[in-house]
Lab assay of single mutants.
Amino acid sequence: MAEAPPRRLGLGPPPGDAPRAELVALTAVQSEQGEAGGGGSPRRLGLLGSPLPPGAPLPGPGSGSGSACGQRSSAAHKRYRRLQNWVYNVLERPRGWAFVYHVFIFLLVFSCLVLSVLSTIQEHQELANECLLILEFVMIVVFGLEYIVRVWSAGCCCRYRGWQGRFRFARKPFCVIDFIVFVASVAVIAAGTQGNIFATSALRSMRFLQILRMVRMDRRGGTWKLLGSVVYAHSKELITAWYIGFLVLIFASFLVYLAEKDANSDFSSYADSLWWGTITLTTIGYGDKTPHTWLGRVLAAGFALLGISFFALPAGILGSGFALKVQEQHRQKHFEKRRMPAANLIQAAWRLYSTDMSRAYLTATWYYYDSILPSFRELALLFEHVQRARNGGLRPLEVRRAPVPDGAPSRYPPVATCHRPGSTSFCPGESSRMGIKDRIRMGSSQRRTGPSKQHLAPPTMPTSPSSEQVGEATSPTKVQKSWSFNDRTRFRASLRLKPRTSAEDAPSEEVA
């Protein structure tokens, strides 16, 4: 009796068929016929556990003709996506030579605008209408194809895939403007070719909807975003200037109206006075309405000098805001240009540092100066060695804690006790272990408590650290204090090793 083939788990290929790579489910599931010992083939499952149809090819690079078809379809799909992405970037994010197409579109729109203006002049109306009709045909074809291509290429973005995504893309403001202008152009052409009475009025009214094509030149909205950011950044200043200017306008108009309503027919109503105030304070000055009385002229002159300053403030605020924003954008561009080279330089330096163990090129690091100058660790070890030599091999803490019996001779020589300023008595072995921070803190506390006492003391002649007598400086308080830590004499004296002298005989010792 033939044995059933062993159940295979995992992703390994079956024996005897090495080139074939078959994806098997996580659990080997066989058909009921196979479990019962029949000759049925096992049921194939996909990666998600769903059964595959009987005629479906197995996924994998070596699955025969199905694999070749899959490779061809995958390559075609990649080319399709690449083309779609390229078209989308050309239309929505132009760079380099892609601006040539947008310059061509701008020339078409500008020519249409010029011809629309010439069509309103009686001398050039006939020729402009003929040229404009031909140009409209060209623009309908160009913009119609462009609109379709834009909607198709938007599928390269995830949020615009599918018919719902394309509809979302078509609802964008600039796409809506394109659609309105396209419909208006078709209506103008249809009305112009019919030759009816309505054609002339339709051409004159709907052609100027094509002015909206100038708005579509900035599809990404960079200028509007820049203007919005400047207004938002200086909103408080703008609101303040406009508010005060509006108050000056209504008060000036009302007072001039009261002064001129009886003697001047131009100011017969408050609305006429508001019109005069707006034209005057905005420095336009049509001259259609002028005050005639001396009181009205004085009020107009005073409020004009006051109001023009507030009406001119928004222009200066926006101008300075634009300058600052442009400078910030230039700085951001320079930062973006330098970020990648800086990151590459840091990575290269780290690779060199991690692979080169000698690091002989590091001549400006802490390790280099640590090898030249005595390190703080060596100074600490030197302090501890000196203290243990004086205390008979014991550390200062051990000397303080060691009990001394009554009447027993002390094995240590008597030492002079010292007192730290602002604290109780402490171990004499710690007097010379006072660090730089303690010395600086002690000097600052003395300056806070009594700076007036220092200038009363007789001035001391500054001497070099080499000429100081070591026996005289029994305490860190003898170090000359200065008002600034930048004094080199104080810094050098604080680094010197001060020996400890006994109370009975204080021989001067120098520590090399």
Rank of each mutant, 00 (worst) to 15 (best):
E3V: 14
A4T: 14
P6S: 10
P6T: 02
R7P: 13
R8G: 06
R8L: 05
G10S: 10
P13A: 02
P14S: 04
P15R: 07
G16W: 06
D17G: 04
P19R: 11
P19L: 14
R20P: 04
E22A: 04
E22K: 13
A25V: 04
E32Q: 03
Q33K: 01
E35V: 05
E35K: 07
A36S: 05
G37V: 11
G38V: 10
L45H: 08
G46S: 10
L47H: 11
P51H: 09
G55S: 01
A56S: 09
L58R: 04
L58I: 05
P59T: 09
G60A: 08
G62V: 08
G62R: 09
S65P: 07
G66S: 10
S67C: 04
C69S: 03
G70V: 11
R72G: 11
S74W: 07
S74P: 03
A75T: 10
A75S: 11
A76E: 14
H77R: 03
K78T: 15
R79L: 15
R81P: 07
L83M: 08
N85D: 14
N85Y: 05
V87A: 07
V90A: 03
R93W: 01
G96D: 02
W97L: 03
H102Y: 00
V103F: 02
F106V: 08
F106S: 04
S116A: 01
V117A: 15
S119F: 11
T120I: 00
H124Y: 02
Q125H: 00
L127P: 07
L132H: 06
L132R: 00
L133I: 00
L133V: 00
I134S: 01
E136V: 00
E136Q: 00
F137L: 14
V142G: 04
L145S: 03
Y147S: 07
V149G: 14
C157R: 04
W163R: 01
Q164L: 08
F167C: 08
R168S: 03
A170G: 08
R171I: 12
R171S: 07
V176A: 08
I177M: 03
A184S: 12
V186M: 06
I189T: 13
N196S: 00
N196T: 00
F198Y: 15
A199G: 15
T200K: 15
T200M: 00
S201A: 00
A202T: 15
M206R: 00
M206L: 04
R207H: 13
R213L: 00
R216H: 00
R216P: 00
T223I: 00
T223P: 00
K225R: 01
K225E: 00
K236E: 01
K236Q: 01
A241S: 02
V248A: 10
I250V: 14
I250F: 02
F254V: 00
L258Q: 02
A259V: 01
D262N: 04
S269C: 00
A271G: 00
D272E: 09
T278A: 08
T282S: 07
T290I: 05
W294L: 11
G302V: 09
A304G: 07
I308N: 13
S309P: 13
G319S: 15
K325M: 00
K325E: 06
E328D: 12
Q329L: 02
R339T: 12
M340R: 07
M340T: 05
Q347K: 14
